[in-house]
């Protein structure tokens, strides 16, 4: 049992250990090998890091829920772009312009509604057709991106509202709005997953769907809610980001799904479902962002970043596999 607890600790703490290692490594590398003349671990740059993590981070939190549930959602990047377009474009509509700043919350609602609806559609298709979530959301990824281009062709969609920009750049104790939204999402979804019935059922369904059905859990509707949640969070991510930037490019959000999945997996969530944690994903998101900044800090070329992250991802999963390998001979009944 002792051994069990230790293993658990290593597994759950691994990502934070890795973050700590990065902090020390880049600090030391920067200072003593004179690769950089500034400190790596200063507060401002860490706060900025949190803000930069927010767009993918918010989506990764939703992805964690969906993956614990035993599914996956590849359409989040397209949903993100589409929600951004709906938000900014709606503010150009005559009746919205007539409302002045009061149109801001309404535009946000439109965006959030769009995201939730797209997620809901994914969920209902997965539920009713029984087609694998990977395939359904792969199709949705192409389809929703198609909608993005149908909306405004290759042109960016923009709307500049300084009140909105001010709001997006407002800060509390140095934390800007996107970072606050990110941390709030982490907190709320963490509570949902650890403390509520919905969270409990998500783990149960992801681990053993048949047993969950036998326990009287409504598996289909449950999954639909999770898809709606990730759609909502993709839209929330767009709201947090585009409120500040005011312009959506139709290619925005591409590969977001893969970065989100990378962060989730680094954070210890199993691809097959049933295990994972929101806090782990927070760690995964921070680790990736830290790595980008760190490599930049020591003067590595930006092109090397993806290579390094790719290698680390595989190394982490290999380690995880070693730690989790069950006895080679398991009693099969």
């Amino acid at each position: 049992m002792q051994n069990d607890t230790l293993k658990k600790l290593i597994k759950n703490g691994a990502i934070w250990g890795f973050i700590l290692f990065q902090l020390v490594f880049f600090e030391v590398a920067g200072r003593w090998w004179s690769l950089s003349d500034s400190a790596f671990m200063d507060l401002d740059s860490m706060l900025l890091l949190l803000k930069q993590s927010a767009p993918i981070g918010i989506i990764a939190i939703g992805m964690t829920v969906v993956m614990i549930n035993g599914n996956i959602d590849l359409s989040v990047g397209a949903t993100y772009a589409l929600a951004g377009i709906v938000m900014l474009d709606s503010m150009n509509w005559p009746f919205m312009e007539a409302m002045g700043d009061a149109s801001i919350p309404l535009a946000w609602l439109f965006a959030l509604f769009t995201g939730s609806l797209l997620g809901l559609i994914n969920g209902v298709i997965v539920w009713k057709t029984g087609v694998d979530a990977f395939i359904v959301t792969l199709g949705a990824m192409l389809g929703y991106r198609g909608l993005v281009f149908m909306y405004n062709g290759e042109n960016p969609t923009y709307h500049l509202n300084w009140t909105m920009v001010d709001f997006a750049e407002a800060d509390i104790l140095g934390l800007e709005t996107p970072a606050i939204v990110f941390l709030a999402v982490v907190l709320v979804v963490w509570l949902v997953m650890t403390r509520t019935v919905h969270g409990r059922n998500a783990y149960a369904i992801g681990d053993n769907r048949e047993a969950a059905v036998n326990a009287g859990i409504r598996v289909g509707p449950h999954m639909v809610w999770n898809f709606a949640l990730i759609g909502f969070l993709a839209a929330l991510s767009a709201v947090a980001f585009y409120s500040g930037s005011g312009s959506v490019n139709p290619n925005d959000g591409m590969l977001f799904e893969l970065w989100a999945i990378t962060a989730v997996v680094l954070g210890g969530t199993k691809l097959t479902g049933g295990r994972g944690s929101i806090i782990g994903t927070l760690g995964g998101v921070i680790a990736i962002q830290l790595l980008r900044r760190g490599l930049n800090h020591i003067g590595a070329q930006t092109e090397t970043v993806n290579l390094v992250i790719g290698i680390i991802l595989i190394a982490v999963l290999f380690l995880d596999r070693q730690l989790n390998r069950k006895g080679a001979e398991e009693l099969k009944v």
């Binding site: 409990r200 783990y203 149960a204 681990d207 053993n208 047993a211 969950a212 859990i217 295990r275 009944v333």
Partner: peptide
Amino acid sequence: KEQGLVLGMNCRDNITLP
């Protein structure tokens, strides 16, 4: 194992699942 238990969950959560 296939139909009854959520093997990755703890004892308490399995008992209270339904």
